Amino acid sequence: MLKSTVCAGLFLPCLVLPALAQGMPRYDVEKYCQEVAGVSGGSAAILNGCMDMEQEAYNILKPDWGGLPARSRSYCDDVAQVSGGSYSILKGCMDMETEASDAPRTFQY
């Protein structure tokens, strides 16, 4: 009985972690957009436009996130975090990765 409990205890996280890993990354959009607006002198129009763009990108990505390739999700999350965490950058990266995987190149001599 103890042996099966230990095995289940060790195996269960293997089943749960991939499901958790499929959740959308959480970025501090307000901070990111404040920084973007700050580059232009603190423009309220830039801030609002940034927030709208980030919300739109998030809303587009969220329903399909778990079905996207894990390697692309991880890579693009890293790319998006370099800028401070941007769903617009995340979406652009995922779009490029999807397009590239749909049309692989071959080399010819």
Rank of each mutant, 00 (worst) to 15 (best):
K3S: 11
T5S: 03
T5W: 08
T5N: 00
A8F: 09
G9N: 00
L10F: 13
L12W: 12
P13V: 12
P13M: 13
L15W: 13
L20R: 15
L20Q: 15
A21M: 15
Q22L: 13
Q22F: 06
G23P: 00
R26D: 15
R26C: 12
D28E: 12
V29M: 04
V29K: 01
E30P: 02
K31Y: 07
C33G: 04
Q34Y: 08
E35G: 00
V36N: 01
S40P: 01
S40T: 10
G41M: 10
G42A: 08
A44F: 10
A45Q: 08
I46P: 01
N48A: 10
G49K: 02
M51L: 15
D52M: 07
E56A: 13
E56G: 10
A57G: 04
Y58V: 02
K62C: 03
P63F: 08
G66D: 04
G66F: 07
G66H: 09
G67P: 03
L68W: 04
P69M: 09
P69K: 10
A70L: 15
A70D: 12
R71F: 10
C76K: 02
D77Y: 07
V79P: 02
V79I: 15
A80C: 08
A80F: 02
Q81K: 14
G85A: 06
S88F: 06
S88I: 01
C93W: 07
D95H: 08
E99Y: 11
S101G: 02
S101W: 05
S101A: 13
P104M: 07
R105F: 10
R105K: 13
T106M: 09
T106R: 09
F107G: 01
